[in-house]
Design a protein around this nucleic acid. Structure first.
Lengths: 231, 231
DNA sequence: CCCTTGATGTCGGAT
DNA sequence: ATCCGACGTCAAGGG
């Protein structure tokens, strides 16, 4: 990994065209040739970048560029598309290289898949007497997150989201329409389950006769395994 | 901006919990206190990070951590949520600070707004005899990208996207339903215009009687102003 | 390999 | 401030 701090300007052309005026920025060149241009603020997204696979070629400036005070020109070309990033470095304030090695990568916990698994284990949260049929119940238009038997007969289709917005209700609606035609399943009720349900989503769900269930992730995780709450 | 290269491990807790095993990484501390942990590969997204507003506190390791070889501990706490990133630095290989100043920011071109403007100017692409009514035609549920008069009478509502997927067709369908009730506009045809139209979106559009128009951005830009193709 | 969905999405504009 | 949609979205999982 190479770290360069320099006054620079940049042009990107590809899916759009973009230009960065002259300013002092951090340039990161990773081992795979990818390049990031960061300013001293904002979030983790670089001002400009090139994703791998790509190649970096450093050249001397032409006469015109040299006249504008350019010290060196970086041309970063994507290997599979015509995306191209051209950086003009005017003044290099820092330049160092470092051997980092391969990263073991991030270990995650707590995403939608986990919520889905927990609700499958705690299907009683849908109401007493519910029995899980299966997770990821397949349909022609994609898998339903959870399918359960309703104690009064019929079936309950559950869409699980971390944050429940209107799209999730639309998605569940499409499933319900399809599943409702199956005489082995009908009648099919719908439940929209999420850690947080947006008001608009709740209104739409109610309007369509879909139930809403707010999931308490910490409580569900605690019920699943008290020890795992420690971290 | 502070750049540190160090062997480190990290824990994040917040919207999820995540762990980074010990490895050599780049740590970037920006002027606003935000922190990025980058490996020497992957994309522009860091392995772990904390977005502003947040505060960084560097402390000495406790006895247990010191026993594991930890040299210093960074606690990065988000100011408005309970998101927290804890980094244990085992060995610092590089540490430098740099004054970058404020960045003037990115100048973009070529997004959906530009496509919309070009199609408004080249409304003949909808077919001969079409006349533009207006861009951003207001409705109760939001503005329609383009509204035009059809040569055979009635109106054409156009949804413009860079990449046309199923959501855009749904959006246009809602507009058509609403606009069709207006006797001054009816009958209202729909056209889904995008640089690229996904097969599923095309099928759905056809099924609903909505026309599909693939936009050639370069050609439209060239027709608009040949010089602007140079960059 | 293409397609679909989720994301600690991020980011910007409008309400 | 919140809500909503676009993004050079990226990245992972399934057919």
């Amino acid at each position: 990994m190479r770290l360069v701090v320099a006054r620079c300007s940049a042009h990107y052309t590809g899916r759009l065209s973009a230009h960065l005026p002259l300013a002092t920025r951090l340039l990161v060149v990773k081992a795979d040739g990818s390049v990031l241009l960061h300013s001293d603020g904002g979030s983790y997204k670089p001002l400009n970048w090139m994703s791998p696979p790509c190649s970096l070629v450093v050249t001397a400036p032409d006469d015109d560029a040299a006249g504008r005070g350019v010290d060196q020109v970086w041309v970063v070309q994507h290997a599979k598309s015509d995306d191209r990033l051209v950086v003009e470095l005017h003044e290099v304030l820092h330049d160092s290289s470092h051997e980092l090695g391969v990263d073991p990568g991030l270990v995650k916990d707590g995403v939608e898949a986990h919520l889905q698994r927990l609700l499958a284990e705690q299907v009683h949260l849908l109401g007493p007497g519910h029995v899980l049929v299966r997770r990821e119940y397949p349909t022609a238009i994609g898998p339903v997150d959870l399918l359960a038997r309703h104690p009064d007969g019929g079936t309950v289709a559950v869409e699980v989201k971390r944050r429940g917005d209107i799209d999730g209700v639309e998605q569940l609606t499409r499933y319900l329409e399809l599943l409702g035609r199956d005489p082995l399943l009908a009648p099919v009720r719908g439940v929209f389950a999420a850690q947080e349900i947006k008001p608009q989503a709740r209104v739409l769900a109610n309007d369509r006769g879909i139930g809403c269930l707010v999931l308490d992730y910490d409580a569900m995780r605690g019920a699943d395994d008290p020890d795992s709450r420690l971290f």
